[in-house]
Amino acid sequence: MGCRKIKKGMILTALMFGGIIGLSGCGKKQDDQLSVRIAHDNNVNTPLHKAFVKYEELVEERSGGKIDVILLPGAQMGSVQDTFEQCRRGDIEMSGSTTSNFTQAIPEFAALESFYMFDDSAHAKRVFESEAGEELMKPLERMDLVGIGYMELGFRNFSNSKHPITKAEDQKNLKIRGYNPIQIKAWESLGVNTTSVSWNELFTSLQQKMIDGQECATNSFYTEKFYEAQDYWSLTKHVFTNFLWYANKEFMESISEEQRTILLECAEEAIDYNWKLADEAEEEALKKLEEEGVQVNEVDVQERRKMGEIINEAIKGDIVSLCGEETYNMLMDAVEEQREK
Rank of each mutant, 00 (worst) to 15 (best):
V127N: 06
M332F: 06
I106P: 13
D41C: 06
R142E: 07
L72F: 14
N160M: 05
I106L: 10
F128S: 12
L331S: 05
L136A: 09
G90N: 10
R89E: 07
E337C: 01
G324L: 08
V335E: 11
W199I: 15
I211A: 02
V299L: 07
S196W: 10
A217P: 07
L277S: 05
M117Q: 12
Q338A: 08
H49K: 03
P107Q: 00
G308I: 11
T236P: 09
G308L: 09
K28M: 14
Q259T: 12
L12F: 11
A281H: 04
G65Q: 06
A111E: 07
S198Y: 11
N219A: 12
F52C: 10
I92S: 00
K185E: 15
E340S: 12
R37P: 03
N193P: 03
I271K: 11
A111K: 07
L277G: 00
E258T: 15
G19I: 09
S220L: 09
V192A: 00
I310G: 09
R177H: 04
M117C: 12
A229K: 03
T236G: 08
E303K: 13
I148S: 09
N180F: 15
Q207L: 11
S95C: 04
L174R: 05
D41G: 03
K276P: 00
V335T: 12
C216W: 02
N157G: 06
C266A: 13
Q183P: 03
G19V: 06
L289N: 05
Y227L: 00
E108M: 05
S196T: 15
I70K: 07
I70M: 13
K288R: 14
E224F: 09
I165G: 01
E268K: 10
I211E: 04
E313F: 08
